[in-house]
Amino acid sequence: MTKPSEIELSRRQLLAATGASVAAATYPSAVAAQASTQTPSTARVSFTVNNTVRKLEVDTRTTLLDALRENLRLPGTKKGCDHGQCGACTVIVDGKRINSCLSLAVMHEGGKITTVEGLGNPKRLHPMQAAFVKHDGFQCGFCTPGQICSAVAVLDEIKAGIPSHVAADLNAAPQISNAELRERMSGNICRCGAYSNIVDAITEVAGRKA
């Protein structure tokens, strides 16, 4: 086995050979900066958002998240990271929860999209929204729309028999347990740390449903 230091030695030799002492460097590189002449391309897309048909003409680069927020002015769905690393942008598309930041709007032609605004409103809360209030399943509230969309979908996933990482028996029907809910909700980060209360809220709704 080679010692850890050998690769690093090679690295230093490599640097010496390629003239690492050159102080100036230009960013971005020529490769990254080329194609500046390209002009934006737009495309039409039509989908249903919270039971309303919406027709849009968008820059092809527009994510589903930005289309919802910036084009349709539905700011409930949040941009926490824009890279699928936090879950704040979770929406339900064709019955399945997804990260709307990692999907282009134009890829959802004919899709049926539900955002947190489609679940309920302050005067008429969805049972999951009411349970989050009751159990204080949030603090700053920024991850909350994503947590709630995810929670609603998670109960459907369990009902549909979709297994999870913590299943002891892959072939058995999944149950609603603390461990199951925690694993399934792990794609929704809450930095305020309301996890314990969120699981309490979901458990209550699951019980009510059963």
Binding site: P75, P122, L125, V133, D136, F138, F142, P145, I148
Partner: peptide, 21 residues
């Protein structure tokens, strides 16, 4: 007591800086 701003936060109607269209 439940948070007085709770219903806004759980429905996506609490407006954070980037939401203030």
């Amino acid at each position: 007591l439940d948070r007085v701003d709770g219903p806004l936060k759980v429905t996506g109607t609490a407006a954070y800086a980037h939401d203030r269209y």
